[in-house]
Design a protein around this nucleic acid. Structure first.
Lengths: 197, 197
DNA sequence: TGTACATCAGTGAACGCGCGTTCACTGATGTAC
DNA sequence: TGTACATCAGTGAACGCGCGTTCACTGATGTAC
């Protein structure tokens, strides 16, 4: 139990370092030697903790998606008006962008590539589950008349998520715009639009 | 003149094939052998037309940015209300997404990685020029009171461009939503918001 | 308190492979006379 | 019409390198008696 607690925490540490390296350099071009150097050990030693380079990332992304989908469903389960629900979803998206920046960046940059690799096929299903959550919320808004029906739920979802993730490269949570304000601005952009009333 | 017209058009053909391979597999993982096979020649023969793998992509991206910036400036030069101008910029973005999908995909996926490589440093400057065009248009709208001033021009730009590019993976120009309609929907999302009036 | 032993995180050197790239060459084509 | 020659797109085989990965090992640490 507490014997492999040490092993488990070292494994976690390596995964965190690896995700950062993958996010910074791109998964395909990042090397196990880079990860090892950041960790302060030799490349071969990583295989004491992980079976392969792929496994490190699979491990990280499975956790990310599990947490995401759990949090998304918790919001869907609430009984709030669609506009508030969408605002909450956007806030959650920003939270993940800030708190789990590396995984978010990796998915934004490398999704197209990873989905083609057999060990990463699961991201297709997971991404679809995430999408379903969002679209459910949007469709509720369209059905009850709070959202415009001309704009499809899929387009809306893609646009919002793309907007959140694309701001990752530039947004600094320590900068002048804090996280709640940033979430509010993004939500307002999509809900109310840019044009003055 | 017409002697290297053949050479030039073959070069262009190879560049087109290469951009497609790079967009599909990611630049780092796509190989010159992949490009060569798609072209129907051997990998070594590519070096008759290009000095290196990097050069093929540099070549493609320089053209893409030149055309983009030219078209963006042409819109900025027009004297139309900011909301119309922003709609035109969005329409242009969608046009590039559809007509030059490979370059758009490559920039969306591999920008973070490419900007770190010396031969691709220019993308930082070019992307900044593109950003300036957008932000100029948005700031005009904020100044003359047509856009809300609480939401910064940079955030707005990132959000819109991220939204356009992120829909690339999913949007099919031959599908039920045609290109003008798609542009209109995206513009409406950002200008008027999702909430019913 | 000291000794013998088990555990296991990390070493160090090497492996095979696929990559970008090189280069001497071939053989089809067009041109000059 | 035929011959000699230049051009040049593409060949084919090889190169060196960096990658993911392997594996016999070491040496520090904790435990049992």
């Amino acid at each position: 139990m507490s014997a492999d607690a040490g092993f488990e925490s070292r494994r976690e540490e390596i995964r965190t370092v690896a995700l950062h390296v993958f996010a910074t350099q791109g998964f395909a071009s990042a090397t196990m030697r880079d990860v090892a150097m950041e960790t302060g050990i030799l490349a071969g030693s990583l295989y004491h903790y992980f079976g392969s380079k792929d496994e490190v990332l699979v491990d990280g992304l499975v956790r990310y998606y599990n947490d995401s989908i759990r949090d998304l469903r918790a919001i869907l389960a609430k009984n709030v008006p669609p506009a508030d629900m969408l605002a909450e979803l956007i806030t959650l998206g920003v939270k993940y962008l800030v708190e789990r920046r590396d995984e978010t960046t990796i998915l934004h940059n490398d999704f197209d590539y990873l989905r083609q690799l057999p060990p990463f096929k699961f991201v297709i299903t997971s991404a679809a589950e995430v999408e379903q959550c969002w679209e459910q919320a949007i469709e509720r808004g369209i059905e009850d008349g709070s959202f415009k029906k001309e704009i499809g739920a899929t387009l809306t979802y893609r646009a919002i998520v793309g907007a959140i993730f694309s701001t990752a490269r530039w947004y600094d949570p320590e900068g002048p715009i804090d996280v709640p304000e940033f979430s509010r601005q993004l939500a307002s952009t999509f809900l109310d639009g840019l044009i003055t009333a």
